Amino acid sequence: TGEEYIAVGDFTAQQVGDLTFKKGEILLVIEKKPDGWWIAKDAKGNEGLVPRTYLEPYS
């Protein structure tokens, strides 16, 4: 389980392990790392690192 967040901007993977997403996408945050990069999963089940500055809590 995780917390749902909504993307407030588009993000394109910079390196292997990053997750590309579009503004408005709902992501499930699995782990919040202290460096500001969180592990998240998208609706298709893809998992990767995302920058927390692009996310806001979804309710």
Rank of each mutant, 00 (worst) to 15 (best):
A43G: 12
K33Q: 10
P57V: 09
D35M: 05
N46G: 08
G9E: 15
I39N: 06
E3Q: 13
T20A: 09
E4S: 14
D42F: 02
A40I: 04
E47Y: 15
D18N: 13
L55E: 00
L27N: 00
E31A: 11
R52N: 15
V29P: 01
E25Y: 05
P34M: 11
Y58R: 09
N46I: 09
K44W: 15
K33Y: 09
K44C: 10
E47M: 12
P34I: 11
E4R: 14
S59V: 12
D35C: 07
K32R: 08
Y5V: 03
G24N: 07
V16G: 10
A40W: 01
L49D: 03
T53H: 12
E3I: 11
Y54L: 15
P51C: 12
D42C: 03
Y5M: 05
P57R: 08
D42T: 06
L27I: 07
V50M: 02
I30M: 12
G24V: 01
L19Q: 01
T12I: 11
G17T: 09
I30N: 03
K23W: 05
L55F: 04
Y58K: 10
P34Y: 12
I30Y: 10
P51H: 14
D35F: 07
W38A: 02
L55A: 01
E25N: 08
I39H: 11
P57N: 06
E3H: 13
G48R: 01
V50L: 03
D35A: 06
F11H: 07
V8I: 15
A43Y: 11
G9Q: 14
K22N: 08
N46K: 09
E25R: 02
T12N: 12
T1Y: 14
D35H: 09
G9F: 15
L27G: 00
W37F: 10
T20W: 04
I6E: 04
S59N: 10
P34H: 12
A40C: 08
V16I: 12
G24R: 03
D10R: 03
D18T: 15
K44P: 03
P57S: 07
E47R: 09
E25W: 13
T20H: 05
P57C: 05
D42N: 15
A40L: 03
D10P: 06
G17K: 05
E56M: 15
A40Y: 02
V16L: 14
V50P: 00
L19G: 01
F11V: 05
A13Q: 06
K23Y: 08
Y54W: 09
K32I: 05
V29F: 02
G9M: 15
K32L: 04
K44I: 10
V50W: 00
K22Y: 10
F21C: 04
L49C: 08
I26V: 10
T20P: 13
D18M: 15
I6C: 05
T12K: 09
F11W: 12
T12F: 12
Y54F: 11
W37N: 05
K33H: 11
L55K: 01
A40P: 00
L49M: 08
E31Q: 11
V50E: 00
T12C: 07
S59M: 10
E31H: 12
E31W: 12
K41H: 08
A43L: 11
I30T: 08
E56Q: 13
G2E: 09
N46A: 10
T1C: 09
A13W: 04
D42R: 02
F11P: 01
F21S: 01
K22R: 12
L55G: 00
G48V: 02
V8Y: 04
P51Y: 15
Y54P: 02
T20M: 04
G17C: 06
R52Q: 14
G9Y: 15
F11R: 08
T53N: 11
D18R: 15
K22V: 09
T53Y: 10
F11L: 04
V50C: 06
T1P: 11
A43K: 12
Y58G: 05
E4C: 12
K23D: 03
L55W: 01
N46W: 05
A13I: 03
Y5W: 13
P34E: 15
K41P: 00
Q14K: 13
E4N: 15
Y54G: 04
K23M: 09
F11Y: 14
V8W: 05
K33R: 14
N46L: 10
G36C: 07
